[in-house]
């Protein structure tokens, strides 16, 4: 055990000493289970997926390398471009709404409230429950004949006939976005609340003494201090919204006339249901540039946060 004690000294030497070597060896043994799982079931499939995008593999038949054929086919495929458009629309609108409403809810929960812990616990429920199961509840809420929303609106005299929530292009898009926002608000609200709670009240008091209105305090105190955590939360939110699959699969399966097909659902439809693994993989590969952009954004968000906290960029 003396070797470990000396490890701290050995580490500073420029060459790799036997102590450091042994220390590395133990560390690598500790890393082994996680590394093995991730390399076999994450890194390798990621590479395999990219490779599959360049083949004509089908279910039950190993594919041949076909170059860019899949991508050329997708380039001329109006359904693919529609799915790209839908994904961007879905992500943009849902993320903006999630941020606005989630931020508002976080500000409300940051107030001095009775039963604060209880409210916070309840608010997180939509996020805890399996998406597919809550989506099934939304399916019933959006029923063409027996929708509770239609019933209430008819009762109030706002509309005459039940709304066709999932059968009409614009309605279907709005409906799936609403369901996604419903599920995403708690995550944004609770994480932003955690950020809000770290802001010292004395800053608001100082701003108020200097004559800042509530709106100005929000704009010039809360927002700047919260920017780093907003960047990270929204990156996660954008990432998960962009790759969403479950909600669409339950509510519309991409319909009506592909108006709500996202890239992920189209990839599943072509790759698994249709058996064209190569084409499905090519659609998944086409998502990667968007994801990389989001990840880079997140990476720089993290860097900035350390710097703002007075830490060093490790």
């Amino acid at each position: 055990m003396t070797t470990d004690t000396l490890g701290g000294v050995a580490r500073r030497r420029p060459w790799i000493s036997p102590h450091a070597l042994r220390r590395n060896l133990v560390a690598w043994i500790f890393m082994l289970p996680a590394a093995a799982l991730l390399v076999v079931f994450l890194t390798y499939p990621l590479g395999l997926g990219v490779w599959l995008g360049f083949t004509d593999a089908r279910i039950g038949r190993p594919g041949m390398y076909v170059g860019l054929e899949n991508f050329e086919m997708l380039w001329d495929d109006s359904v693919f471009w529609l799915s790209v458009f839908n994904t961007v629309l879905y992500t943009t609108v849902a993320s903006l709404l999630k941020f606005a409403l989630g931020f508002w809810l976080a500000l409300l929960l940051n107030e001095h409230l009775p039963f604060k812990a209880f409210f916070r616990a309840i608010v997180l429920l939509p996020w805890v429950v399996p998406t597919v199961l809550s989506a099934i509840a939304f399916w019933w809420i959006y029923d063409a004949q027996f929708s509770i929303i239609s019933w209430v609106l008819i009762k109030w005299g706002w509309i005459d006939a039940p709304i066709n929530f999932l059968g009409d292009v614009a309605n279907a898009r709005a409906s799936v976005i609403a369901a996604n926002v419903w599920r995403g608000i708690p995550f944004v609200a609770i994480t932003l609340l955690a950020g809000l709670q770290t802001i010292s009240p004395s800053l608001y008091e100082a701003a108020a003494l200097d004559g800042a209105t509530a709106m100005q305090r929000l704009r010039y105190v809360t927002l700047p201090l919260l920017t780093p955590i907003i960047a990270i939360v929204m990156t996660f939110s954008v990432l998960f919204t962009f790759t969403d699959f479950q909600l669409i699969y339950v509510l519309t399966r991409g319909g009506p006339v592909n108006a709500t097909h996202l890239m992920a659902t189209l990839s599943f439809q072509r790759g698994i249901s249709g058996g064209q693994l190569g084409e499905g993989a090519a659609i998944a590969v086409a998502m990667i540039p968007f994801l990389l952009a989001a990840i880079l954004f997140s990476y720089f968000g993290l860097q900035r946060r350390r710097w703002q906290q007075g830490g060093t960029d490790r």
Partner: peptide, 20 residues
């Protein structure tokens, strides 16, 4: 790398994983 792995969504892994 672990952080980046967290950002890889199942939606782009399920086809190659199905094959595996």
């Amino acid at each position: 790398g672990i952080f980046l792995a967290y950002l890889v969504p199942p939606s782009i892994l399920f086809i190659p994983l199905a094959l595996m």
